[in-house]
Amino acid sequence: MAMKKAKIRLDALLFYILGALYFLVPLLATFLFSLRGKKDEIGFQAYLNVFADPNFLKSFTFSLEMAVLTVVLGLGLLVPTVLWVHLRAPKWKVALDLFSLLPFVVPPVILAFGYIKLYGPAPFAWSSSPLLLAAGYVVLCFPFVYRSLDGGLKAIDLKRLWEAGASLGAGPVRTLFTIVLPNLRSALLSAVFLTFATVLGELTLAVLLAWPAFGPYMALVGRDLAYEPAALAVLSFGLTWAFLGLIHLFSRGDHGVSRTR
């Protein structure tokens, strides 16, 4: 029995090592490559070049703004919808599950051309508005936001909490902000950070709708330069992990919703 346990642990260790090599070796190689920005020297020249480029900050700030807008629009649209479906129209959940998969089925390029076709000419000539890009991002992030919220709501007995709030005299708004949303904190944080990670790296919509976002900037740098793209890739990776770290950090304060039932 003990031998079997030891064998399982060894197997697991082997897969951990293989997995780590698979993910870390290319990253390490990219990082080492990014340090060779100056000939015959190891240093952070490529990173300094990236930070010195005004387009870096401009594109990054633009994408950050878009990410904030996407979060506001996405959560503003999906939180009430998912709550409504869970509380009042559970039979629509299947449809919502299906819709949430559409962004994986319909490629962003189709979405972008659809937008240009529909919102290019009058009377809906909105293709020059950044709101249209944010709307596209909302669609792209729909699966992540929906799945996060759905998972969060499944972990709490929403209907009972809602009714308990009402029986104590609370109206829907008060119940939403004092009971439901605080108990969805980690789900909301997941949705927010996954949206940020998606928007910051998104290329297709931004290119086709002609916006100076961070994704197209990375692609442009990758086409024209050698070491800076590697530095950007490492920065982007670090940023994503920083977001995941933040999710973990903020979720730790969660009071174990699912454990209370």
Partner: peptide
């Protein structure tokens, strides 16, 4: 009348305490 205006208290089978 809506439930929040009735002033009727309720105790649920699964407690329904607010976890936060």
């Amino acid at each position: 009348k809506s439930p929040n205006r009735r002033n009727i208290g309720m105790v649920f089978q699964n407690y329904a305490l607010f976890p936060n």
